[in-house]
Amino acid sequence: MLTNKSKQVVKREMTLMEKAYLPAIFSGMFITFKHIFMKKATVRYPEQTRPFAPVYRGQHVLKIDEAGAERCTACGLCAVACPAEAITMVAAERQKGEEHLYREEKYASIYEINMLRCIFCGLCEEACPKEAIFLTDRIVPSSFERDEFVYGKDKLVETIANPVDVTKRQTPEVLEFKKDKKQKHNLTFLDKVTKTFSRH
């Protein structure tokens, strides 16, 4: 009665026409015959792919800046934000002569994402103050070995030769949000911390 869709069931004798079954069978066969000429729902996968939503969250990329230096400073906010604890990193200090490799004085010498743990929620991307990590519309390929799913910097960092397009994830709303992202993000993070402490 809530949806107003309920229908009173009437149990009555079938008419002779219904008892003969054949008209019903023919109408059913007409329906199946019609379906032969209908559009197929199949997506022939390797050749065809479904169009992804513009905000699809797939395999991560570690962006580089215009000069080709890594943006990541190994601050660890992504690792903290990650609800699945999929991200680990080891920070290192930039040496003299490495300025073209790393944008700031600190960088991640090891940066690993375990793709089996990752739930592709995109919180790392939201947490990142340096616009370094993004989720892309690439699908993480399958593999037979578990350890092959731990993606290191070799698989995550984009190269100048093969830049990864993340403009789809940088819609006007996102860019607007990211203008004061630093404060906003820190605020929310601090809020979280204070909430956690005040609860105990």
């Binding site: 199946t32 032969i36 197929k40 199949t42 022939r44």
Partner: peptide
């Protein structure tokens, strides 16, 4: 396959 709007073995 075609009666169920699929493609079938191809």
């Amino acid at each position: 396959a075609v009666m169920q709007d699929r493609v079938g073995p191809n």
